[in-house]
Nucleic acid binder design. Sequence first.
DNA 1: GCACAAAATTTAAACGATTAACTTGTGAAA
DNA 2: TTTCACAAGTTAATCGTTTAAATTTTGTGC
Lengths: 370, 370
Amino acid sequence: MATLKDVAERAGVSTATVSYVMNNKENKVSETVAQKVRRAARELGYQPNIAARALRSSRSNIIGIVSEDISTFQVNNIVQGINQAADRENYQILLGDLNLCGKIWHDGRQDYSLTMNYRKEVRDKIEIFRTVGACGIIYVGMHDRDITGLIRTDMPLVYAYSYTKNPGDYMVNNDNQRVATQAVEAMLRQGRKRIGLISGPVESVPAYKRLMGYQTALMEAGAAMDPALIEYGDWSPYSGEKACRRLMALEERPDALFCMNDWMAVGAMKVLKEMGIAIGEEIVLIGFDDIELCDYVEPALTSISIPLVEIGRLAAEKLIRLTAGGQECRHREELPCQIIGRETFVYESAPEKEIGKSVKTVDKTAEMSA
Amino acid sequence: MATLKDVAERAGVSTATVSYVMNNKENKVSETVAQKVRRAARELGYQPNIAARALRSSRSNIIGIVSEDISTFQVNNIVQGINQAADRENYQILLGDLNLCGKIWHDGRQDYSLTMNYRKEVRDKIEIFRTVGACGIIYVGMHDRDITGLIRTDMPLVYAYSYTKNPGDYMVNNDNQRVATQAVEAMLRQGRKRIGLISGPVESVPAYKRLMGYQTALMEAGAAMDPALIEYGDWSPYSGEKACRRLMALEERPDALFCMNDWMAVGAMKVLKEMGIAIGEEIVLIGFDDIELCDYVEPALTSISIPLVEIGRLAAEKLIRLTAGGQECRHREELPCQIIGRETFVYESAPEKEIGKSVKTVDKTAEMSA
DNA sequence: GCACAAAATTTAAACGATTAACTTGTGAAA
DNA sequence: TTTCACAAGTTAATCGTTTAAATTTTGTGC
């Protein structure tokens, strides 16, 4: 491999000059010399040695990713987004996956992510990233926990698909509340009166946000807010079944169901079919996540698509902007989701002005948004 | 961050001594001093600087991964396996994803992976890995191409889930042929006479291997090898539909279907249902990949599970063994798959001695296996 | 032609590890 | 007592960059 020194010799200048040219310190080098240097570099196929650069300047183009579990489709797609942005900007990515799903991480009371062991693992990964010379960290969560204050580092840090209350944190997420409002509004517009909610676990932050969105829509429409219409599951199809059974046992049955993920929706559909209820007519149904399965259940499941790849891309771009000099950028982004209409609920978007116009009025967490 | 020098000062020795202790060069340092050093290191929370080590010794504990597309479940799970092994052995992973699916990579005649552009991208990634100080490379494919000779590097290289004919290459795969034989044998044991095959594209290597397995089973049983029973799809559900329609239009209909992936199987099931054919009785069906969907179609789809995580783990272990000194290890591994019985075909495993006993007799590629 | 500022380039010291080569100390054999 | 081998440590060069500081070159006005 050709080194700086080789390039310098070939171009007949000092290594410092070459370094300046390579780093585009334009005010340091005359254009004539710069051209000569660039040619020499090209001819030798020069590639800067990242390890050397990182060592000397503790600056580099390496992004460290700490992810909760790469085998989930969320983390998976976000990492893809990060990779795309990194590629474009000539950054490399170091992957440190915590493999959370492989651990007993959520027993109802105790959350693995709050244990000392988890903290230590995260801290270690970040320390290692530092010694490799990483210039910043992206934390990719599975979206279920509030991890405010868990991670401590002096490198720039961006949270992707994870919640933290600290207003100084950089965070890229999807807009759960807003899209939940939109979905429920659409159901109301079609004349649905009693909209059941199959929520995620109470302690889940995104579930809370979606719940807020649901309530916002109902309040705005002056519709019934019957607590009996809200059931909590654990994201599994089985919990969706149970929730649905309870809802359908109500005296006044719901005529619509908003499920906070597709797997619970599939569970619910199983129950509805058993009961011989006409899905899409007698009752409409919407899921969340828009996983591949939606197209292949019958009837096809209307769902909400989260811009995961986009979240990853944006997180990486934000991090790169943060590291590459003091450019200011917004602390929080919440990207819009998209409702994907299929057979269980024929979606029609709202007339312009009505969409989520009052998102902030009910969101108790609105104050966090910097 | 504490450096070697800090540790040396605190222990009252030279940096060389500390280095020797840290690298377990036991014959160089007395046990008394070693203990003192280890204590000092612990007290200071010393972490070796990977960039410095890589620079000085071009040796490190960084594994570079070149993957074809991280958003596919195969690559995804394999990376998880690599991560697990790396974690255990204190290695770090650099991820370089090619994002192949995002490119027009397969138009029937031209395969993106054969273009100059692809080669350049791979070469670049590897060059960058070198400058970071990576000690070796794992190439993670999507299993469809023979990439013999595509990659050139002097770092140790292990192929995971990718085929290459070069006998000197290290490669970890699943045993496609053997499990295909097992599956078809099981169908024959249940008295099925005409077993249809919905294959992947002709040019796909794993599809070829599975075809060999299918033929082996039929030959052994002296069963009919009707070319009309073989249809080729492109892995998509739609192609599965088409293939199935053609097979069911035959004068002598198949009474069993072996599909080379689950999506085509799902497509086939759609057709069978439309035709009112009793799946699991009139015709039995088996897919390949064992994706989540299998549990949620009706009837639930019997499938073949590929040990993806295990493939990743083994590939990483192999690479680590290769880099950490000249330990010899086998060039090729083909891990066994598992048949997961569900409703479309009630699987019963064979009496011991019959299972795939003649795998090698028909495999034209057997000679490759070192 | 001179003084002096500004621009262009070079020099050389880091960064934190590894390791060949060298020094010192100890004990056994001659 | 001398000699030599060996074990236990140390010294210092090195990997390929970056960058503050020093130096040289160029340009400007008088």
